[in-house]
Every structure is written in C-alpha cells, then in structure tokens.
C-alpha cells in the first residue's frame, strides 16, 4: 500500500466562525418549518425586523450595543487566557451605578460621561476581584459565576427597598434624568450610544494590538510559563485583564440604561453577559471581530420578537442560532487541538 500525499484544505482562521454561522442557519431551517412557518418567510421576517425600516435599524443597533461592549469585556480577558463568565454581573453593576448617578443628579451637556466612567470603575472593581482571587488559586470561572449571583441579588435587594420608584406598581428604579440620557438621532431612531461603542471598540483595539500591556496580555494567554520567564507579574497582569474586561462590560450596562431602558428592573438584561461569551469565543479573543459577531447576535435577538409576534414561532428557536455556531466552532478547534496534540506528540 502506498502512502498518498495528503492535500488537506486549510481555511483562514476567520472563516471558521462565519461558516459555523451559515451552518447554524441551515440547521435551524427545518425547525422553523416544524414551528409552522416557511423557511424563507421566517428569515425574511427576521431580516425585516432589523432592516425593514429606520425604526428597525435603531432597535437592531440598540440590542447590539450591550453585546458589543460586554463582548469586548469577555474577549479582552480571553486574550490573557482568562474566561470571564462574569459579564452579566459586571454589566448589571455598571447599569446599576449608571442609573444611580443618572437618577441622583440633574445632569447636563456632556454629563453622561460621569455615569459611564463610574460604571466602568465599579464593574472593573468587580472584575478585579475575580482576577485577584485567580492569583490566589481560585478559578475565574467559578468566581465570576458567584459574583454574578452577588450582583443579581444585590440588585433585587435594592429594588425592593430604597432604590425602587415608589410610584411604580412593580420593582424598578426611577428613570434616569433627561440630563444624563444618551438620546437618539436621525428621526429619533438611531442611538447615540453607537458613537460611544465606536470609541470603546477603537480603544480596545488600540489597547490589545498596539500597546505593550496588550502584548503582555496576549503573551500570558499564549503561555504562562513563557510569561513568567519574561518577567510578568502573573497576579497583577491577571487582575488588570479582569478589571479591564469587567469595566468594558460595565460600560455596556450603563449605555443600555442611559440610552434605552432608563429604569433598571430585576430582569433588564436578556442575558447579554452570556451571549457575549458566544461573541467573544467566535471572535477568538480578538477585539475587532467582536463588532460583527455582536451585531449578528443583536440582529438575531431583534428578530426574535418579530418571529414570535408575526409568525407565531417560538422565539427561543433563535437561541439555537446563538448556540449552534459556538458549538460548531468549539468542535472544530477542539478537533484541531486534538490532532495537533497527536501530531506533535507533546
């Protein structure tokens, strides 16, 4: 038997997540069919939800903004080899702090910077706790999940007491004062938050790809052993990575509250912190790819409601579209890593 030469197709790294998304759309099609609507019809309605009108575009961007920011907040620590599952809690902390400042003071032109910065700081502190604990041997996945619970229940506690708007029949805070609201433009459809997101994305790209700190984070993500030999202080670098990640996620929460919901309720987040993990994984810890993937998931989330309202298809089906690409990508990389282990033999 002769050993033939192997012509193996090698795909550029960025293509894998995109193909995974296409594959997930194909996978969902029969389920939409079972749900009682035509495939074409289903996707057309989803498309219309985001691109059918300016209102649609505005609502698509609004749903995407937290995903962009929390996505960065997961992707940045991921770069340093840390898995930030605490995006939800950090988002919530940022939102809470943003709303607190937005309701406690009057505000004015440019005042929105104050709650955003405070949200960054508070959520960064929360992230830093996980980084600090990591240095003491507690895994960041465990600690960030626990910190999520702390954030969620703290919010619920506050909403039952002093933080609740007494004029409301349900548990939600007072509305953010006009002087802090981010507002919308182009016929009151497009959120100004997109500029904030653009600035933050640019800053994150700059930090990750153009600074020594960003290089050190990437080095730590590549090899802890090499990082130590290069003189990195593991505890400090990890704390910084988690703090930055938490801060970015916190800004995501504040932008949502100051630009869209204004009042914080116990269930104001549809799980952005967790969808953001999918975003960051597909972006493979790189900053710029977070943007398209967040916009795609924002598009799905935006279409979900319409799918349910107009076609009567359970909106939860859309969750499959969020999960499937991640599973596919994880499987592809997992398989590659396995092959590599076998081939290199180390």
């Amino acid at each position: 038997m002769r050993l033939g030469s192997r012509g193996r197709l090698r795909l550029p790294e960025t293509v894998v997540p995109v193909l995974a998304i296409v594959a997930s759309l194909v996978v969902l099609a029969p389920l939409v069919q079972i749900g009682g609507a035509g495939i074409a019809e289903g996707y057309r309605e989803m498309f219309k939800a985001s691109f059918g009108s300016m209102v649609g575009v505005g609502s698509w961007l609004t749903s995407s903004l937290p995903l962009v920011l929390v996505g960065l907040g997961v992707a940045l620590p991921y770069r340093a080899g840390l898995f930030n599952v605490g995006g939800e809690g950090q988002l919530l902390t940022g939102a809470l702090v943003g709303v607190y400042i937005g309701t406690a003071f009057g505000g004015g032109p440019g005042a929105f910077m104050l709650p955003l910065l405070a949200a960054f700081g508070a959520a960064a502190a929360l992230g830093a706790v996980a980084g600090w604990l990591k240095a003491r041997g507690m895994h960041e996945i465990v600690t960030t999940i626990m910190l999520n619970f702390i954030a969620v229940f703290s919010l619920q506690f506050l909403l039952r007491g002093s933080f609740k708007d007494p004029d409301l029949p349900y548990a939600a805070s007072r509305a953010v004062n006009d002087g802090f609201r981010l507002g919308r433009f182009a016929g009151d459809d497009i959120p100004y938050g997109i500029f904030i997101a653009a600035v933050v994305v640019a800053a994150a790209v700059y930090l990750a790809d153009y600074t020594r700190l960003g290089w050190r984070l990437g080095l730590l993500g590549q090899s802890e052993a090499v990082a130590v030999r290069q003189g990195l202080n593991l505890a400090r670098t990890r704390t910084v990575a988690m703090a930055l990640g938490g801060g970015l996620a916190g800004v995501g929460g504040a932008v949502e509250l100051l630009g869209n919901q204004y009042r914080i309720g116990a269930h104001f987040s549809p799980g952005w912190g967790f969808t953001a993990i999918a975003v960051a994984l597909l972006a493979r810890g790189k900053m710029l790819p977070v943007l398209p993937f967040a916009l795609y998931f924002g598009f799905l989330q935006n279409g979900e409601v319409r799918l349910q309202a107009i076609l009567g298809i359970p909106g939860n089906l859309v969750l499959i579209l969020v999960a499937a690409p991640v599973i596919i990508v994880a499987a592809v990389y997992g398989f590659r890593a396995y092959r590599k282990t076998v081939m290199v033999g180390t």
């Binding site: 790809d209 153009y210 600074t211 020594r212 960003g214 290089w215 050190r216 080095l219 090499v226 290069q230 003189g231 990195l232």
Partner: peptide, 13 residues
Amino acid sequence: ALGTFAWQEAPTP
C-alpha cells in the same frame, strides 16, 4: 520580538 514588545516598545504596525 517577545520581550521587546512586552517591555521596551509598543507593538505599533
């Protein structure tokens, strides 16, 4: 360039 970009100079294009 491992150590250079980690400590000495920022990894600009």
